[in-house]
Design a protein around this nucleic acid. Structure first.
Length: 485
RNA sequence: UCCCUGGUAGCUCAGCUGGUUAGAGCACAUGACUGUUAAUCAUGGGGUCGCUGGUUCAAGUCCAGCCCGGGGAGCCA
């Protein structure tokens, strides 16, 4: 039996007048006659009209919220005003009952907190089904973008024996007995006895391995789960998240910025093209939510308009020096409204990034040329004439893409390809060179200028969906003290 | 980890300065309904007031500790 997706039933005008079978989950059953059926193919429901003479009362009583149902009938123009077509049901089967008393999700508005606690069922709501369809569009668009530019999808390992990547605290991977681990003569845990014969951890980044690949395959990108054991309790952090990390040989900082901006725009364009129903739903939801907020906290543009605006305008590209200048001349600085100091050499705080993006430029901003002291060892040291070079101190070819409401959505850089400079920086920052010999080999044998970045998938989905909490844009969020489901 | 804030019915929330039997809307159950759009109408059931201890004649309400959620900050993507 062919099952027609509800999306096709609603959109394909050639199906009107034909007999089709649809299958999905009941959203509501009204007037003992109308099933609003959803199968996940679209946010819209198909109205299935039951003939009460043909379907007995006992069966009709089983059309409860979230029961799974299969309906066969004729697709006809609707007599009601809420939809273009509806299904005149000739045959209906309840595939799986849903006890209305026990089922937690009701046909009403629920708080996101409650739905988060029912993460296994929240996909059945309009909001979350929209989010995860959009997440799919973004994921697929990532492959589409890099493939179209000749990038090779590269699978970096999830388990690593190196903790020198410096991107954050790592989770340990071990098969040793936690209560009685083997010990060395000195009384320490003997990791040689562990599964990998060394201390192993979950990756915090595939970048270093991607650099190995880029200096052979030319252009690569990784896309997979990444793990950080930081005790971060915010709306923008997860312990397990998905990251995209392109890395390309013969690419400089400007090319890197072009690549990052191009990716963001490609993804936004794709979502606008393929997920407009879902976006419009989230847009309306957002407006409703914002109506309860004071005027100054409301955003000027709706979700769809915001996405179009980002798509249509170039990202602002400034140096760290310029960012500091703007902040020093800003009203909040002069009125002493910033909590953290603004001076050359210290990192930009959330409040500073927010000011630049949301108040000053009112669009995405790429900041380059950060002081070397606050950035990772592998970033290229700037020389006079480089964009981002500063008279005030040593800077590196870093670039952070800052988005309104979210802050840093992409962090990247041109990499230090000069072996001597790289080794000196590793010494300064106490990065163990011995452990990273395989990484340094890229600079020993045919080193080339190259660049890349990391984009947090969930942060991007957060922006595209207009959601406020990163735990709502990943199916089963892992955060400190929480790994349920 | 730090700061702020909250936890009362399945959900969303009200409950004043401590004082009868802790309320509402929605949901749910039963009944009605052949054009509904989060359908509607009638009737009904439903509570360890987060946990533990304390103050008091009396605690949902006051105090202390703990647990959990939310917002913000740091770390970052």
């Amino acid at each position: 039996m062919d099952i027609t997706p509800i999306k096709s039933a609603l959109d394909d005008e050639a199906l009107t007048g034909t007999t089709i079978t649809v299958a999905g989950w009941v959203r509501t059953f009204r007037n003992d006659r109308f099933i609003a059926l959803n199968d996940g193919s679209t946010i819209r429901n198909l109205q299935c009209v039951i003939d009460q003479n043909a379907v007995d009362a006992a069966t009709r009583a089983r059309f409860t919220t979230s029961a799974s149902v299969r309906c066969t009938g004729t697709l006809v123009p609707s007599q009601g005003s809420g939809q273009r077509v509806e299904l005149q049901v000739a045959d209906v089967a309840v595939l799986g009952d849903s006890d209305a008393e026990a089922y937690p999700i009701q046909p009403k508005k629920h708080s996101l907190e409650f739905l988060r606690e029912n993460a296994h069922l929240r996909f059945r709501t309009n909001t979350y089904s929209a989010i995860f369809r959009i997440r799919h569009q973004v994921s697929f668009g990532i492959h589409e973008y890099f493939d179209s530019l000749g990038y090779c999808y590269f699978h970096s390992p999830v388990i690593t024996a190196s903790d020198a990547e410096g991107a954050g605290e790592m989770f340990r991977v071990s098969t040793l007995d936690v209560k009685r681990p083997p010990l060395t003569e000195g009384g320490d845990v003997d990791w040689k006895e562990d599964f990998f014969g060394a201390e192993a951890r979950l990756t915090v980044s595939g970048q270093l391995q991607a650099e190995n690949a880029a200096t052979a395959l030319g252009k690569v990108y990784t896309f997979g789960p990444t793990f950080r054991a930081e005790n971060s309790n915010t709306t923008r952090h997860l312990a397990e998240f998905w990251m995209v990390e392109p890395e390309a040989a013969f690419l400089d900082l400007h090319g890197d910025m072009d690549l990052a901006e191009g990716l963001c725009k490609h993804l936004i364009a794709r979502v606008l093209r393929n997920s407009l129903d879902d976006l419009k739903f989230l847009d309306a939801r957002l407006k409703e939510e914002e109506a309860t907020k004071p005027k100054e906290q409301r955003s000027e543009l709706g979700l769809v308009d915001r996405l179009r605006f980002v798509l249509d305008n170039p990202f602002e590209r400034i140096t760290y020096d310029q960012a500091i200048d703007i902040l020093l001349r800003s009203k909040p600085y002069q009125k002493k409204q910033f909590q953290f100091p603004v001076e050359w050499g210290v990192d930009l705080q959330s409040e500073h990034e927010r000011y630049l993006v949301e108040k000053h430029f009112k669009k995405p901003v790429i900041v380059t040329g950060y002081p070397a002291g606050i950035k990772a060892f592998y970033m290229r040291v700037n020389s006079p004439g480089d964009f981002g070079y500063s008279e005030k101190g040593t800077t590196v070819a870093a670039m952070d893409v800052l988005f309104p409401g979210i802050g840093e959505i992409i962090g990247g850089s041109q990499r230090e390809e000069r072996l001597d400079v790289l080794e000196q920086r590793m010494d300064e920052m106490h990065v163990p060179k011995g452990e990273l010999w395989w990484y340094l080999d890229t600079r020993r044998f045919g080193t080339v200028p190259h660049a890349g970045f990391g984009l947090g998938l969930e942060r991007f989905v957060l922006f595209v969906t207009g959601m406020g909490n990163i735990r709502d844009v990943i199916p089963f969020p892992r955060t400190p003290k929480s790994a349920a489901f």
